[in-house]
Design a protein around this nucleic acid. Structure first.
Lengths: 227, 227
DNA sequence: AGGTTTTGCGTATGAGGTACGCATAAAGGG
DNA sequence: CCCTTTATGCGTACCTCATACGCAAAACCT
């Protein structure tokens, strides 16, 4: 048997508690003291199971996602589309994921499972192994960037709704000098930034779909040139 | 004339000093006390020119980039490629940019200038205004995601070189269960993750080029279906 | 010169991360 | 059943930070 006093909590418990706090109040609210309090333990008790706060953040990152969803039967394209959308959904569910500093390639089981899922979608294609990895990394990258942008915009909107929405187009009209930035000025004048719902869910989704569509289109062309 | 004591420093000075520190030692080393010390002032003196540290970070973000580069004459595609690569170069030069929390759409002059530059590249195309914005946002998003990935990987590599490089492929071989993750297992077995220089500059650049190529390919196809 | 205004900054407060060491509990050996 | 071994729980203390507050110093105005 194991000697010594029995642990009353473990790293997974701590991670869960930390995630609950982050979900409810953002990553900034996650402090060692707060997590401990939420669990009914003393602050320093956590350090028996977690080397540092950094390590806790890494654990949170690993645990932030659900398992990858089952992909539909059919073409690689439909599969990857579903995959990317689900991934984005996951990041949106836990926006604080974007704030945790990662270092090194992923080794967490969840991350790897998602990676595998996307690679599986490309199984039937004539792409080389390296190319498959490239496609998936590109997609990952794209989703991450999109989520980052969305979260940033959404956050600003929540902080101060009056300042954005319709105001943004107006603001740009004041700032943008048509002589120095002719192309932007034209777009601004066309009213592209004037809608009230510039950053609402539907619009953001459409934006993402468009970019995703372009990327997958590119993959399709690449595959076409191969076979 | 202006009344009152003359300011000995201004927000731009503070921003410059903060950026110098971030460049040399990372964003974590930027504290109000440290910035003040570096400038030969007292800590609280900074608060006369900057409302809070958050505001300082925003200013740093605005000032992190150079002006957008001149784009080559020719096709939109070549222009956007240069644009994206230069943008990535900019982020790589100041990796801490990725760590500063943004909220709301950009209003800084530098950000807008880059935006304008990319829109200008699409001037000759038959795309709608909204579509142009979509393409540029997609590209931005992609570059951001790519930079994030690169920085994360590079950081892990610098922290502990032995743990990655060739080790990574080996490590994956141990972790990845072929039954649960067949597609990944196949790629790992193919040795895609075994190179020593997995995360060096050339490789990373090639990775980016590939994704960028795919995206631009998608844009081209989209334009083709339009004219 | 005296009043006014704006900047410089010393002090103090409160929050957060974590090193250290002792108290405490659980097992094993006699 | 007591004592040793070993691992956990956690109180105390220290250090770093951001920042509110208020006074003193400097520059302008009349």
């Amino acid at each position: 048997m194991k000697r010594g006093r029995k642990p009353t909590i473990d790293a997974a418990d701590i991670t869960r508690a930390a995630i609950a706090i982050a979900d409810a109040e953002g990553l900034a609210a996650v402090s060692m003291a707060r997590v401990a309090q939420e669990m009914g333990n003393a602050t320093m008790a956590l350090y028996r199971h977690v080397k540092s706060k950094d390590e806790l953040l890494t654990l949170m990152g690993d645990a932030a996602f659900d398992d990858p969803p089952p992909l539909p039967d059919g073409e690689w394209r439909d599969k990857l589309e579903v995959w990317a959308k689900e991934l984005l959904k996951g990041v949106r569910k836990r926006p604080w994921f974007l704030q945790i500093p990662m270092s090194g390639p992923p080794t967490g089981p969840r991350s790897l499972a998602w990676f595998d899922s996307a690679l599986g979608a490309l199984e039937g294609t004539p792409l080389e192994a390296e190319e498959k990895v490239g496609v998936v990394m590109g997609l990952l990258t794209f989703v991450h960037g999109e989520a980052w942008l969305n979260v940033a915009l959404t956050k600003g909107f929540e902080d101060d709704p009056a300042r954005f929405s319709r105001q943004y187009g107006q603001r740009l009209r004041e700032i943008v000098d048509p002589r120095r930035m002719p192309a932007l000025a034209k777009i601004v004048a066309a009213g592209v930034f004037d809608m009230d719902d510039l950053f609402d869910a539907d619009d953001v989704a459409a934006e993402f779909d468009f970019g995703l569509h372009l990327f997958l289109e590119g993959v399709a062309t690449h595959i076409g040139g191969r076979s």
